[in-house]
């Protein structure tokens, strides 16, 4: 999804979104497409099935700008998105992954 091109963008405030979704082929495209279409940068993305595989959890690392609440509302409208929770950028999920990106 869009790359951050400038240092300013890197310095921007971030947030982590946690989406519970129905697990089927296509749901990632729906979620990623929504952000791309509305020209909203996604910095990091992580998706794994949970439980018996009927649901997945998607973690998104995004910029916390004034459009984020609109993006959250749009994501909630997707039929296969069951819930959206917003966390601070300090959420452990992406921090723990940093080791894999050294």
């Amino acid at each position: 999804m869009g790359e951050s091109t400038s240092a300013d963008l890197q310095a921007q405030k971030k947030a982590v979104l946690e989406l519970a979704v129905r697990n089927h082929p296509g749901v990632m495209t729906h979620v990623c497409g929504l952000f791309a279409r509305r020209a909203f940068n996604v910095e990091g993305i992580l998706c794994m099935p949970v439980g018996d595989g009927g649901e997945s959890r998607i973690w998104l690392l995004v910029h916390d700008d004034e459009r984020l609440s609109q993006m959250t509302l749009q994501a909630e409208k997707l039929e296969d998105v069951l819930s959206v929770r917003r966390h601070g950028a300090d959420h452990a999920v992406f921090e723990r992954l940093e080791a894999f990106f050294q």
Partner: peptide, 8 residues
Amino acid sequence: IDASEIHK
């Protein structure tokens, strides 16, 4: 009816 329209 569409929450995302309010404040958009």
